[in-house]
């Protein structure tokens, strides 16, 4: 049977449409309305949709102002622009506003290589690092469409800034409507005892395909929340397997694998880990699949890396 494929940007749009009855939710767009799938929200709730034009900095600070008057604003754009063009505004206007930071949700689509045909300037490979470094910021990178729907809903309940990293590409649905999602929790997708594989974001679908090619006793843990990291579950798995591999569609510097490394160091776990991601490079134009292959993040390359462990 063909597995259902959907993008996490569709998860954002569908979720906001459903949550839109909440009179506090305000959606802001910097021109990319349909592209980030908030066009339906804009039509249904025009009084709570703000079109800032191509002005991500203005959008971020306006959202801070809205949140200071008890609104729950979502700023939406592509991950290559927000958060990068507006990092200063996210730091000062959002993260430094009040004890928990301003209650602004930053939802960014087209992350990783999902906008690959547009070339390297459109490929967001640094956004996790940019957001993870900020105090008060929570960073979520859902693994599929259904998890995105829940992550958006949980982000609304959570009081404080949340970065939600989303993708343009239609990828396999791994979770279902019934599955649990909580901020700060990891989810064991496959139980195993020889190797711990940790992944975040929609690249998880590639990892699952890689596992089908292998005859290895792998424990696969999805880590949709990168900050705060669920140290307990990860450490428990590692104490059993003694081997770790991380997979992300992001620069290795400052990304998800770095977060895992830092956590292991904090807990004085004396081990080296294998991190898959982009090693200090920019991409090129091509298809999503082309770019995954170029950076050895396609299922076949991932399988080879796991095999070599």
């Amino acid at each position: 049977m063909e597995i259902e494929k959907k993008s996490t940007r569709d998860g954002l749009g569908d979720s906001l449409l459903e949550l839109g009855e909440n009179p506090d939710i305000v959606v802001l767009s910097a021109d990319l309305t349909e592209s980030v799938r908030v066009d339906k929200f804009a039509k249904k709730f025009p009084n709570r949709f703000i079109q800032t034009g191509i002005a991500e900095q203005n959008m971020a600070s306006i959202a801070a102002g809205l949140s200071l008057c008890n609104k729950i604003p979502f700023i939406t754009s592509h991950a290559a622009f927000s958060p990068s063009r507006n990092w200063d505004q996210i730091r000062v206007s959002i993260c430094m506003s009040g004890e928990n930071g301003a209650n602004v949700k930053i939802a960014s689509t087209h992350s990783g290589f999902s906008n690959a045909p547009d070339g390297q300037t459109a490929e967001a490979l640094e956004d996790i690092a940019l957001m993870r470094v900020l105090p008060k910021m929570t960073v979520i990178s859902p693994i599929d469409y259904y998890q995105t729907i829940k992550a958006v809903s949980e982000a609304v309940k959570y009081k404080g800034p949340v970065y939600i990293r989303l993708s343009k590409t239609d990828t396999e649905c791994i979770t279902s409507e019934k599955d649990d999602f909580q901020i700060g929790k990891t989810y064991v997708l496959r139980k195993g005892s020889a190797i711990t594989v940790l992944c975040t974001g929609v690249i998880t679908a590639e990892v699952l395909k890689a596992m089908e090619m292998l005859d290895k006793d792998i424990e696969l843990i999805a880590c949709p929340t990168i900050k705060p990291l669920d140290a307990e579950t990860i450490l428990k798995s590692i104490s059993k397997t003694g081997k770790v591999l991380t997979v992300e569609e992001h620069q290795l510097s400052g990304g998800f694998g770095s977060a895992v490394l830092e956590m292991l160091n904090e807990h004085k776990v004396p081990m080296t880990i294998t991190r898959l991601g982009v090693n200090d490079a920019f991409g090129v134009s091509g298809s999503y699949e082309d770019l995954l292959q170029k950076f050895c993040l396609d299922s076949k390359s991932i399988a080879e890396k796991i095999k070599a462990l």
Binding site: V26, N47, R48, I50, Q57, N58, A60, S61, I62, A63, A64, G65, L66, S67, L68, C69, N70, K71, P73, D88, Q89, R91, V92, S93, M96, S97, G98, E99
Partner: peptide
């Protein structure tokens, strides 16, 4: 913001306040 009563925003990096104020004005309209 919230460091002492009466302070309504955080600033220091120039150019952000007018946007913050716009957010508050939009909230009043909503």
């Amino acid at each position: 913001l919230a460091s002492i009563p009466g302070i309504e925003n955080t600033s220091g990096s120039l150019g952000q306040g007018l946007s913050q104020a716009i957010g508050m004005a939009l909230a009043a309209i909503i």
